[in-house]
């Protein structure tokens, strides 16, 4: 199960559809706290998380994880990518806007 976190509901909806169609099981959350609660109780293969959200940043989400998981950071900001890419806990960085194919490629290893 992939957990997708983004405060943009439209992106949550469309990526859920695209990933599911590609055979990747996904749960999307617009609220990071809810996502963390879900991860704590459910087997999670990887997390894809937006960087800038009103409640907390992607890195704060990473800090709240109770275990080590593949963590992909998505950012629409300028200049965030280099900074967070240096964090060893971040598996990969996706810069918005990215091609849907790129996300599929990245998450291909987690196909059920």
């Amino acid at each position: 199960m992939i957990v997708y976190i983004d405060d943009e509901p439209v992106l949550c909806r469309i990526f859920t559809r695209i990933l599911t169609a590609a055979g990747i099981r996904v749960r999307a959350f617009t609220n990071p706290a809810e996502a963390l609660a879900f991860v704590a109780d459910n087997a999670t293969a990887a997390i894809v998380c937006d960087y800038r959200m009103p409640e907390m940043t992607g890195l704060q989400v990473l800090g709240h994880l109770d275990r080590e998981l593949p963590f992909y950071l998505v950012s629409g900001d300028i200049g965030i990518a280099d900074e967070v890419a240096a964090d060893p806990r971040v598996t990969g960085v996706l810069t918005k806007p990215f091609r849907a194919e790129r996300l599929l490629e990245l998450l291909a290893p987690y196909r059920a």
């Binding site: 469309i14 629409g76 918005k96 806007p97 990215f98 091609r99």
Partner: peptide, 9 residues
């Protein structure tokens, strides 16, 4: 970038 990501998807 968010609308652009939506458009691409």
């Amino acid at each position: 970038n968010n609308p652009l990501a939506i458009i691409d998807a």
